[in-house]
Design a binder for these strands. Structure first.
Length: 115
DNA sequence: ATTCTGACAGCAA
DNA sequence: TTTGCTGCCAGAA
C-alpha cells in the first residue's frame, strides 16, 4: 500500500459497515451508531458520513438511519425527497409525516444486537 | 493554519 | 408543554 489514503478503519467506514448491518425492515438512529462506534456524542458525524456515502462503491442502506425521533431527517439528501420514504415503505415499514411509525418497535440498536 | 459546516442529541427557558 | 439553543466530532474550504 503505497498510498496513504484513508484506511478502511476510518470513522466513515465504520459508519458504513454498521449501516450495512442494519437488518431489512429495521431502522436505527444516528446516535445509536455513534454510540456503537464509541463516540456517542458524534451523532452528527454519522450523518455527515452518510452524506458522502456516495464515495463508497458499496450500497449503503442509509434510508434505514433516522434520527432519535424516527424522523426522516436525511430524506432531502436522497435523489427525491420521497425516495427515502419509498425505500422504507418497500421494506414493510410505515412512514407517515416523515416519521417512522412504531419506530421504537422497529428500532435496531447495534450496541445491543451486535454486542 | 483557521473557520465553518453538517442527514444529531441533550438540555434550558 | 413546546420551542430553541448549544455541544459534540471530524472533514472540507
Amino acid at each position: 500500500m503505497t498510498g496513504k489514503k484513508k484506511n478502511n478503519n476510518d470513522f466513515f467506514s465504520k459508519v458504513y459497515d454498521v449501516t450495512c448491518l442494519i437488518p431489512y425492515g429495521r431502522v436505527t438512529s444516528y446516535g445509536a451508531i455513534a454510540r456503537y462506534l464509541g463516540t456517542g456524542r458524534s451523532a452528527r458525524m454519522v450523518g455527515w458520513a452518510l452524506n458522502i456515502c456516495h464515495n463508497n462503491p458499496e450500497f449503503i442502506p442509509a434510508h434505514r438511519v433516522v434520527n432519535r425521533k424516527g424522523l426522516l431527517t436525511g430524506k432531502r439528501h436522497f435523489g427525491n425527497s420521497s425516495t427515502m420514504q419509498q425505500l422504507l415503505e418497500s421494506e414493510g415499514l410505515i412512514v407517515e409525516d416523515d416519521c417512522v411509525l412504531n419506530f421504537r418497535e422497529k428500532f435496531w440498536d447495534p450496541s445491543a444486537e451486535l454486542q
